[in-house]
Structures are given as structure tokens and as C-alpha cells.
């Protein structure tokens, strides 16, 4: 199975960054240190460019920045244009299903229900693309307010009860009984992170024997949220990869997994925008535990009483 290696999205982005760094170094006259440091293609580009005039270099930098901004804006605009037709499609189908524009028989209804669920699926992908574009352009902002993290996790878990029931997967929630765990967070954004982690866990456990356990714990000025599953697990070499954009692990669950591979990348960035961090521990074939840490509101509180 030899196929030509396609650069990952991460690599494309990294190369762009590298180029930018070289050009910036050029402009500030620090290029010599770069020259000695490596023999990458970026340095080769430097050799060529360093012979050009200062004005040309400045123009290059400007263009490069302009290009990368266009790259993000383009994505945002396209995604935005996707939303209006989606809204129209969704509302048209909903009106028929709600019986507001006349009767339709069961066969028609069954088809429309399929259309409806796929509109939602498409909508979720558009959401991910939009978020990614906003993150890249530095336009995704979090507005933090003090929230009870235990309630937040429970709320999120509740929205998965029916789909877990259908798949005969057990959900459970544990937390310290002694205290309420508050942290300053953007409620909707943290719910988005949780939805993603629960959604993944549910996607990668086997129907009938899946167990998903959520935990909210306290850890030295941090609140630790863990979501453990007994699904397919993640190979060691894939652990880093799953947090990268457009990447999925080689080991798939029992059902075709679908998805864009953006969910975890977005989730991780959202957590980092909160000053937190995210990771996973996993044993391939046995299950995974995704976790994230959020800084608590009041660091002066003692960690244990």
C-alpha cells in the first residue's frame, strides 16, 4: 500500500509559519542565526531572498500576511454562505414535518426525517469549519463567567441520555460531595467541549457494553474534568495526532466513524483559551480517558480542607 504522501493541514500551516519567521528575521536583520541553525528549505528561500532589495522583502512579508488572512477570511465567508441555505432547508423540512403546509404520508415523512438528520449533520460540520476559521483568525473569543462546573458536566451528560439509551451504553457521573466546583468559563464554549468529548466517547464504544464515566475533580487550583470510556482506545502513536486539525486515529471504532477530525482540535483550543490544558490517556483496545483542566476562580482557596 504505497501512496504518495500528502502533507497534513498542520504541515501546511507550519510551513507558512516557518516562511513568515524567516521573512521576519530577514527584516529585523537576525537572519544569520537562522542560517546557522538548520538546513531546511526555508533557509534556502532565505538565501534567494536575501539577495533582493529591502523594499521587495517588505512587500513579500506584507503579501504573506495578507495571504494568510485571506486564507482564514475565505473560510469564514464560505462557511457563512453555507448557513443561509442550511437554515432554509431545515425550516422547509421542519414546516412539512410539523404539518403546517399540508398532510404527507408515512413514506414521505420517513424520507424527510432522513433529510432532517443530515441537515443537522451538515450543520455540525459547518459549525466546526466556522470555529476553525475563527480560531485561525484569532476571532474566537471566550466571555467568562463564574459557573458551577459540576452542573455544567451533568447538563451536558443529560443531553446524551437518550442516544446512549438507544445504543445501550451506560453513563455515570462522579464528583466530590464536599464542595461546589466553580470556575470562570464561557458556558457555551465549555458545553461545546463536553459535547464533543461525550459524542466521541459514545461514537467509539461498542453498543450494549459501553460504559462512559464522567468525573469532576479538584487538583491544586485546577478543576479536572475526565471522561472515561471502554471503547476502542487510541494507539500510542496516535495520541498527539487526534488533537490536530483534520486528523483521525488509524484505529476506528466498530462502526464507520465519520466526522471531520476537527472536534478535538477545536476543543483543545477552547480549553487553552481558558488558560487550561487538555490531554488523553488510553490503552489501545481497552478504552480512553480524555481530560481537561480549568483554572479555578479563586486561587486563594485552600486546595484541601
Amino acid at each position: 500500500m504505497s501512496e504518495e504522501r500528502r502533507p497534513s493541514y498542520e504541515e501546511v500551516v507550519r510551513e507558512l509559519e516557518e516562511l513568515k519567521a524567516v521573512l521576519a528575521a530577514l527584516q529585523s536583520g537576525q537572519a544569520d542565526t537562522l542560517l546557522g541553525s538548520s538546513d531546511s528549505s526555508a533557509v534556502e528561500i532565505y538565501r534567494v531572498i536575501s539577495e533582493q532589495q529591502e523594499a521587495e522583502r517588505t512587500e513579500l512579508i506584507r503579501r504573506l500576511e495578507h495571504l494568510s488572512r485571506i486564507k482564514s477570511d475565505f473560510l469564514a465567508l464560505v462557511s457563512h454562505e453555507l448557513r443561509t441555505p442550511l437554515a432554509i432547508l431545515q425550516e422547509a423540512v421542519n414546516l412539512i414535518l410539523d404539518g403546517l403546509v399540508g398532510r404527507c404520508d408515512e413514506g414521505v415523512k420517513a424520507c424527510l426525517v432522513m433529510a432532517q438528520s443530515n441537515i443537522l449533520r451538515l450543520g455540525a460540520i459547518v459549525n466546526d469549519l466556522l470555529d476553525m476559521a475563527a480560531l485561525e483568525a484569532g476571532r474566537l473569543k471566550v466571555t467568562k463567567e463564574k459557573e458551577n462546573i459540576q452542573l455544567l458536566v451533568e447538563d451536558s451528560l443529560k443531553t446524551f441520555q437518550s442516544s446512549a439509551g438507544e445504543k445501550q451504553v451506560r453513563l455515570s457521573f462522579e464528583t466530590g460531595k464536599d464542595a461546589v466546583y466553580y470556575a470562570p468559563v464561557d458556558r457555551n464554549r465549555i458545553l461545546q467541549v463536553l459535547t464533543n468529548l461525550f459524542g466521541n466517547a459514545l461514537k467509539f464504544v461498542r453498543p450494549g457494553e459501553g460504559i462512559i464515566q464522567a468525573r469532576v475533580l479538584r487538583e491544586n487550583g485546577w478543576i479536572r474534568i475526565e471522561i472515561e470510556d471502554n471503547g476502542c482506545g487510541i494507539r500510542k502513536e496516535d495520541k498527539e495526532k487526534v488533537f490536530q486539525r483534520f486528523e483521525q486515529a488509524g484505529g476506528r471504532g466498530p462502526a464507520p466513524a465519520g466526522g471531520t477530525g476537527l472536534g478535538l482540535a477545536i476543543a483543545k483550543e477552547i480549553v487553552e483559551l481558558h488558560g487550561g490544558r487538555m490531554g488523553v490517556s488510553s490503552e489501545y483496545g481497552k478504552g480512553s480517558t480524555f481530560f481537561f483542566l480549568l483554572p479555578t476562580a479563586s486561587r486563594e482557596l485552600p486546595d484541601r480542607q
Binding site: I88, E91, A92, L95, D98, L100
Partner: peptide
């Protein structure tokens, strides 16, 4: 978006 407006009208009138 004229179509969206029309669908909204149906929903609201109903």
C-alpha cells in the same frame, strides 16, 4: 433572503 422570510411567515402565521 426572500425564501427564508417566506418560510418564517408560514411558521409564525401558523
Amino acid at each position: 433572503e426572500e425564501q427564508l422570510a417566506r418560510l418564517l411567515e408560514i411558521r409564525l402565521r401558523a
